[in-house]
Design a protein around this nucleic acid. Structure first.
Lengths: 230, 230
DNA sequence: CGCACGATTGACGGAGCTCAAGCCGCGTGG
DNA sequence: CCACGCGGCTTGAGCTCCGTCAATCGTGCG
């Protein structure tokens, strides 16, 4: 894991959707406090209950947010893709661990300074609020899925999520960066049930499984119908 | 449902924990835009997908937040008690419906003006952020319960939640303001399973059921152990 | 007192969990 | 280049917990 100072033009590093359309002048204060970090696949970027002293912006790669309990149970909270922010919280501690699923590049900001700069710029301010609301909205969707849906419907929910949020232009080819255990812990199921749900969707001609980690959407309408929370 | 202007001293209405310790001078701008609302038990205060144009502060009573899908499934998101804020979002629409479980009194603020005032006062600003984070933290706890816990453990989670958040000084006597269907939809179970979970906890001498809506905690340590997400 | 509705209990079936075996893709080494 | 082994995924068999359906209980209210 290496952290380096930025010595290049500001705009180069702020391609995240969070910063889109904000002028270089406004970005400069953030650039001044920004470092970069590169983490290999499998590393733990943030440990649950550690002090929330950094804010991260994902530049490339993919990460997983998770919570674990003492008795070994784990709930995967979500996945972070390029453009996502991690660690915008007002609590003292991180609510979850963050683990890199692939090698990932991130921007790192000191938490306190980040919020100070955000607070003094109304463009940023509203974006941070929207980001927070989006996170909550996603968590509520997931809650609905876990509380009210069957195994194969939950899987549709996950596929839909990834399909819409993964980088790249073709949402019909889904790149499953996580393994089956991660999916199971995200959906509140076991790996066996996840596997059976995959074959069920395959046999219903809703998806085509090109490999264990690559899925093609055949019938998007039905996928959405099964995934939807409304 | 009646809405009235405030003509009494400011402090009278701002006893919510959200406003605690903030001076009358600072509260005045909020008082100026504040109306009151009283809703009888069973009323729908906010309808899912309606424009998020109000912020509410609960003065007395109890409310339930829920999401419904077209096919009739419902997920209860949480419960609001005196001192809670409802509707702090940056989205255009409410993410959920809000229904009064008892007759409830609320303060009502226009959304836009509320946020403007909040943004110009650093005391408020940090409190709003903390409130948002607490809501997310609670939702994550619930997510963990639905994903990883068995029926009777989920029930312990709910009892623990209410016990800690309900008004009144004695956390060992739990007032179940909601009915069994509400509990079931909160925990992702059916009413029958909820009922069986109650008798299971009763037979294990963890709780005593005084009536269908009043429960006494016998063994708080075990209750916490079963409820905990860590 | 009797009705009505909500809560509880019982019997049964099924979705998903557990345990175990088999399969597949991939990397390593002969 | 192929044999082998390993780890992750899939499939199968049996069991368990929870959902479903139905009957009963209990409490509050007209």
């Amino acid at each position: 894991m290496l952290e380096t100072e930025i010595h290049r033009p500001v705009e180069t590093f702020f391609h995240s959707r969070f910063f889109r359309g904000i002028s270089a002048d406004e970005l400069q204060p953030l650039a001044n406090i920004c470092k970069r970090k590169q983490v290999p696949a499998g590393t733990c970027l943030v440990r649950q209950h550690s002090p929330a002293s950094q804010v991260y912006s994902v530049i490339s790669g993919a990460l997983m947010l998770e919570r674990s309990s003492r008795n070994g149970k784990r709930q995967v909270i979500g996945f972070s893709f390029p453009g996502d922010l991690i660690g915008i919280t007002s609590n003292q501690e991180f609510e979850y661990s963050v683990i890199a699923l692939k090698e990932s590049h991130l921007q790192v900001f000191p938490h306190r300074e980040f919020l100070d700069i955000i607070d003094n710029n109304s463009n940023f301010k509203s974006r941070v609020r929207v980001t927070g609301c989006n996170i909550l909205a996603h968590t509520l969707d997931q809650l609905f899925a876990l509380g009210q849906k069957k195994a194969h419907e939950r899987l549709c929910f996950l596929l839909q999520q990834i399909s819409l949020r993964q980088p790249g232009s073709n949402p019909d080819v889904i790149d499953l960066i996580m393994n089956r255990q991660d999916i199971a812990d995200y959906l509140g199921l076991t790996i066996e049930t996840v596997s059976r749900a995959f074959t069920k969707l395959k046999n219903s001609n809703i998806i085509h499984i090109e490999s264990a980690h690559k899925v093609r959407v055949i019938d998007r309408l039905i996928l959405e119908e099964l995934a939807s929370a409304h």
